[in-house]
Amino acid sequence: MERAGVGIIEADLVMDAGPCERDIRSAARGNGIRFQNVSMSFGGNRGGHPTLAVDDFSLEVAENEFLVIVGPSGCGKSTLLAMAGGLTQPTTGRLSLGDEPIVKPGPDKAIVFQTFSLFPWMTVIDNIEFGMRLNGVSPAERQRRIDYYLPIIGLKGFEDHYPKQLSGGMQQRVAIARCLVLRPRLLLMDEPFAALDAQNRTVMQEELVRVWSAHRPTVIFVTHSVEEAVFLADRIVVMTRRPGRIKDVIDVRDTTGAQHWRAAPLDQVMRRSDFQDLRGRVWDLIRDEIVIE
């Protein structure tokens, strides 16, 4: 895979000159997402008492923003993503995308699941194409988008492989591609790189930045890796332990200025002292929340 050595602005120009310039987003305005006093409790089945997973969570994510959520295990990060994706409804509070309330899942709110969740009976191509078929994208357009993304995710030559014949990293790239081809307004990613080894992870982070930069859907990205958060995020939300509340919101852009870290290769960025400092700050915030139960 080729290294993403270009800045965002440059990348934007390169990508937008490609064959997919017309997309849903440019027509629709307002792709920010808003959480208003969102709480979620899971009913205590069989007499157990209910679990309050997310408590009074309020946040606005701007259009085109790359938001990263970090927090201790079990604090409700996946629950938040499921609600943002419309897969579940909050117990109280409201969520909206643009000016529409989020009531059901759909291709405008794409999710990359932690457990790839590819369809085992479909080949790579079929997996990527499935969402477009469901949404009536014309065959010619489907082909164009596939031709565009397949080389980007480095799976040319694997079109007819089944998921079980791919490595974990390759499967995750297919899972990302099947979301990107839909041109979602909102891209939700739940620890997408957790299953990858360190090298693959770095490459994937840089690739993600590259493909994301082309259309810049609003992103909410959940991770356990503080380094990944600091590298990718515009803003970082640190959550408390369960019930999950917002502990702090850190705007990475305050430190980086206009030239975001993610535009450069990770290994260069990691050596910077301001990067190290910010990483330490986020890590301190999380450390307080970790308890061994």
Binding site: L87, P107, I111, F113, S117, F119, F130, L134, R178, L182
Partner: peptide, 13 residues
């Protein structure tokens, strides 16, 4: 698996 159903719903099924 619930994750396959969720994935398909997310894709617009």
């Amino acid at each position: 698996p619930a994750n396959l159903i969720n994935a398909a719903r997310m894709l617009g099924a």
